[in-house]
Design a protein around this nucleic acid. Structure first.
Length: 288
DNA sequence: ACTCAGGTATTAC
DNA sequence: GTAATACCTGAG
C-alpha cells in the first residue's frame, strides 16, 4: 500500500477538534500543530486543516477518497440538520454554535461494540489506553512514516485470548464481558452483518442488549456511532442527564428527570434527529 | 488514603 | 418492574 492524498476544499460542518473530541471515537490523537492522526479498519491517516482546506494523507485499503467519504459521513448534509435542530430552541442553537464542526463518523460496528463495552464506568484516557494495548497485542501492525500503528483486532484475532490476558491489559472487570461478547459474535449468536441491513432499530437494539456488557447506554452509543448509523437514538449518560436537567427542567427542588422522562422528552423535542441533538448538547455541556 | 469516571449485572424488595 | 450495590484501575 502506498500513500495517498485527498483534499476537500471549503468544507462546512467540519472541524477536527469537534469531530475527534466529541466523545464518539478513541483512536484519533492530536499532533502538536492541531492536526490529527488516526487509524480505522486498515487505514492510517493524518488530517490537517490548512486555510480552508482539509487535507487527508495516509495509507488506505481502498481509494482514499472513498474511504474518507464513507468514514467522515461526507455525503450527509449537516448544514441542513443543524438548521433544523437550531430552530427547535435556543439551547440547541447555542450548543450547535459551539460544536458546529461535529460529524458523526461511520465507525466499524465490531470495534464500536468493544470500545463502548470498555467505556463502561471508565474515563477517556484509560479507555484509549486499553484500546491501544488491545490493538498492539492482537491487531496487525501498519508502518507509516517511520511509526507503527496497530489495527483494531478482529473477533478472529481475539478468538484464543483468555480472560486473564485481558485482565493483564488493564480491562478490569470488563475482561469477562469482552471475552463473552467476542465468543457470542464468533458463534454467530448475533450476526453483525444482518444488523446493518435490518432497518428495524428497536430489533437491532434488542440484539445488541443480549451481548455481555451491553446495556441501554452502550447499545445506543453503538447504534449512533457505528456504521449502523441510527441517528434517532438518544444515548443517556451522566452528561446528558446533567444537560437535560439543566436546560429542560425547572429545578425548584432537588428532584431530577428520570431516565424515562428524558427519553420521552428527547423523542418529542428532537424526533428522528435525537442522536445529533444529543451529541451537540453533550459536547457543549462537557467542554464549554 | 480516597474519590471518581461514557454503566452493567446481580441481588433484593 | 424499580432500587441498591459491587465492580478493575489509575489519575488527581
Amino acid at each position: 500500500m502506498k500513500e495517498q492524498t485527498y483534499q476537500i476544499t471549503n468544507p462546512k460542518s467540519f472541524e477536527l477538534k469537534d469531530i475527534f473530541e466529541c466523545g464518539q471515537c478513541f483512536r484519533w490523537n492530536p499532533e502538536k500543530d492541531g492536526s490529527y492522526t488516526g487509524i480505522w479498519k486498515n487505514n492510517v491517516v493524518h488530517v490537517q486543516k490548512e486555510n480552508n482546506n482539509i487535507i487527508f494523507q495516509g495509507i488506505t485499503e481502498n481509494e482514499i477518497k472513498q474511504e474518507i467519504e464513507n468514514y467522515f459521513d461526507l455525503n450527509r448534509d449537516y448544514e441542513q440538520i443543524k438548521k433544523q435542530l437550531a430552530s427547535i430552541d435556543n439551547h440547541l442553537k447555542t450548543s450547535i454554535q459551539y460544536g458546529k464542526g461535529i460529524r458523526i463518523l461511520n465507525q466499524d460496528l465490531w470495534e464500536t461494540i468493544l470500545s463502548f463495552i470498555i467505556s463502561a464506568n471508565n474515563n477517556i484516557p484509560r479507555i484509549k489506553g486499553i484500546i491501544e494495548r488491545l490493538s498492539q497485542n492482537y491487531g496487525k501492525e501498519i508502518r507509516w512514516r517511520g511509526k507503527s500503528y496497530y489495527t483494531f483486532p478482529t473477533p478472529e484475532e481475539l478468538k484464543d485470548v483468555t480472560v486473564e490476558e485481558y485482565r493483564k491489559l488493564g480491562l478490569g472487570f470488563r475482561d469477562i464481558r469482552v471475552y463473552e461478547t467476542t465468543k457470542m459474535i464468533l458463534e454467530k449468536q448475533v450476526d453483525l452483518e444482518q444488523m446493518k441491513s435490518n432497518p428495524n432499530t428497536l430489533e437491532v437494539r434488542n440484539q445488541l442488549l443480549t451481548l455481555s456488557g451491553v446495556g441501554p447506554k452502550v447499545a445506543d452509543c453503538i447504534l449512533l456511532f457505528s456504521d449502523l448509523k441510527r441517528l434517532e437514538v438518544f444515548p443517556i449518560d451522566v452528561w446528558v442527564r446533567r444537560v437535560m436537567n439543566d436546560l429542560y427542567f425547572q429545578k425548584e427542588d432537588e428532584t431530577k428527570l428520570s431516565k424515562k422522562q428524558i427519553e420521552t422528552l428527547a423523542q418529542e423535542k428532537f424526533g428522528n434527529l435525537a442522536g445529533l441533538a444529543q451529541q451537540y448538547l453533550f459536547y457543549w455541556r462537557r467542554e464549554a
